[in-house]
Design a protein around this nucleic acid. Structure first.
Length: 365
DNA sequence: GGGAGACCTAGTAA
DNA sequence: ATTACTAGGTCTC
């Protein structure tokens, strides 16, 4: 049986540290530039600088923050993943700038890899530009922004994004990653980096060949029928599901959410994630428990203590949009990142004012 | 229309 | 060692 070979995932845990502030033990230096050794062994990684400062893209503040579960940390300030058919590593240089390395992509023209990368990184949007606007209307955002520069929203492939967040409901990161890895392993194998295997994300046709039974055996639980059901519904779309999803980029947020939530397993939260992380809906606000806390603390304190109902979800989204404008989803992303334990620990103490909820944490309230 | 329960599973807290 | 609960929700009464 094609059981998941996920031995390496055992290292996944919430204790995973992200070495962002500490000086990297081994400064990433592109050494291929001077290497004249034959390309035999390591097929010497060829690092190409991007014209990208850390303030426009921080890898540790972008990749391991719940937008995607397909990228892996493969070095101190290095992350590796797949974009289309390209296996790519990204890393920060010593000055903070970003460079990339295109790993042996056999049958694909490497010419368009860089443009695919820039598209994936959503470089059409200037972080500096929109953060200036957020900072003007929110002094707390302004200060957070100085500590968490470069927290960016990605522009992922819609199908890939959809499947990932279908797995995310009522779930934890370790298991989501395991499930996404199982689905990914159905796609074409592209190579391995730092002990991790990487696959092209499977097509809709390929996905349709997996049964609910197999997914359950792979540990999907009740989400197994979400995936098979959604795949089936997508394949029934005129022109094919992939194109149908892509076309959602041309619509407004309301229509996008409405369309997505017709798919089984896609509720308001998952739909907002897909909309924001892959469909150019920059004002989409994925309201989960964390965002709910942020909102009731800083935006709509009068709702503190209430339960998170669908109705209140849209209240929260409206509050974000009215405060931050049409890129509210990007603002929400920074505020969300600031709540992650790994980041919170690195922020000045005065940011963690509402931490004592531990004592009042019981069910009573 | 809104409110409870059920739902898979693995890890952690009582 | 069992039990209860939680974790980036959704579906169904």
């Amino acid at each position: 049986m094609l059981q998941l070979k996920l031995g390496h995932l055992s290292i996944m845990s919430k204790k995973r540290q992200i070495p962002i502030q500490s000086p990297p033990p081994t400064p990433p230096t592109p050494q291929s530039l001077t290497s004249k050794r034959p390309k035999t062994l390591l097929k010497s990684p060829n690092w190409v600088p991007l014209n990208l400062t850390q303030s426009e893209l921080s890898l540790p503040l972008t990749f391991p923050t719940g937008q995607t579960f397909r990228w892996r940390q493969t070095g101190p300030l290095q992350y590796t993943g797949v974009i289309g058919s390209h296996l790519i590593s990204l890393q920060h240089l010593q000055n903070g700038d970003v460079s990339y390395c295109l790993h042996h992509s056999s049958s694909t023209p490497k010419s368009n890899a860089e443009s695919a990368l820039l598209d994936f990184l959503n470089m059409g949007i200037s972080l500096a530009g929109i953060w200036e606007v957020f900072s003007a209307s929110d002094s707390r955002f302004a200060e957070l922004a100085t500590h968490l520069a470069g927290a960016r929203v990605l522009r992922q492939d819609p199908l890939e994004c959809l499947v990932q967040f279908l797995c995310s409901s009522n779930n934890n990161i370790a298991r989501i990653t395991k499930m996404v890895d199982f689905v990914s392993s159905l796609g074409t194998h592209l190579g391995s980096v730092a002990g991790f295997e990487f696959h092209q994300f499977p097509s809709l046709d390929r996905l349709s060949m997996v049964s609910e039974q197999e997914l359950r055996e792979a540990g999907f639980g009740y989400r197994a029928k979400y995936l098979t059901g959604t795949v089936k519904a997508l394949r029934a779309k005129p022109g094919g599901g992939e194109e149908w999803l892509l076309n959602l980029r041309k619509l407004g947020l309301e229509e996008v959410i409405e369309a997505l939530t017709t798919l089984p397993g896609v509720g308001p939260k998952v739909a907002a994630c897909i909309a924001l992380f892959s469909l150019d809906q920059h004002d989409a606000i994925p309201v989960d428990t964390h965002v709910w806390k942020i909102a009731t603390r800083y935006l709509i304190p009068e709702l503190a203590g209430a339960r998170l109902t669908p109705k209140l979800c849209s209240r929260v989204a409206e509050a974000f949009v009215s405060k931050y404008g049409k890129y509210a989803g990007w603002a929400q992303t920074l505020l969300f990142v600031a709540e992650l334990p790994s980041q919170k620990a690195l922020l000045p103490p005065h940011f963690s004012n509402a931490k004592e909820s531990k004592s009042t944490k019981g069910k009573g309230r």
